[in-house]
């Protein structure tokens, strides 16, 4: 159930972002909403459940990109695993610390994405991707601030134990 909710949230966020980006006219300064979601999974989900959800979220991102290559599916699972590792060293509780955590995840995700794109591009032009990254990371941090309460609410709803009156 948690998996389906995660996929549903990812789908809704990606669709919304795709339309908002079109309306706002931002071309390179994107908001990595999926990385925010994967960062949250890294903090809260179990290994298998989180990896499966990250896989699904990455697949959706790949699909939305117009040219599904598997890169973003791989990066989502990798970001989830790296996030889990990092979360053993840092204490992420509030919205601000989560935003910083998500920004770190987005930076790693963006750099790896640029690296793999550089590997596959004939001319290896990644300057546009890297130049847009600071804005992208900052916007992702802002999105993380706003999305954290929403994710917490969904998590609470999922963890609610069935009782007599439910």
């Amino acid at each position: 159930m948690k998996f389906l909710v995660t996929v549903g949230i990812a789908l809704a966020l990606l669709t919304l972002e795709s339309v908002l980006v079109q309306q706002a006219g931002l071309v390179l300064g994107r908001v990595d909403v999926t990385v925010v979601l994967v960062a949250f999974l890294a903090l809260r989900a179990s290994l298998v459940e989180g990896a499966l959800s990250a896989f699904a979220v990455g697949y959706l991102l790949d699909l939305m990109s117009g040219q599904p290559t598997g890169l973003f599916t791989f990066l989502a699972v990798l970001t989830f695993l790296a996030g889990r590792l990092v979360s053993t060293f840092v204490d992420v509780r509030g919205a601000v610390s989560f935003a910083l955590f998500a920004m770190g995840a987005d930076l790693g995700h963006g750099l790896l994405s640029a690296f793999f794109t550089w590997l596959t591009l004939k001319d290896g032009i990644t300057a546009p991707l890297l130049s847009g990254m600071p804005l992208q990371v900052a916007l992702t941090g802002l999105a993380a601030l706003g999305l954290y309460p929403l994710f917490k609410r969904f998590e609470t709803a999922q963890d609610r134990q069935p009782g007599l009156l439910r």
Binding site: A51, A54, P68, T69, G70, L71, F74, V77, F116, L121
Partner: peptide, 27 residues
């Protein structure tokens, strides 16, 4: 089984990416 499953989830898309490269695949 758990680490294996996670390993597959990580490596399958990477392999697909390395095979298909920038061309992607048909839907």
């Amino acid at each position: 089984r758990r680490p294996l499953l996670v390993g597959i989830l990580l490596l399958y898309p990477l392999a697909a990416f390395l095979v298909s490269g920038r061309r992607g695949r048909d839907p």
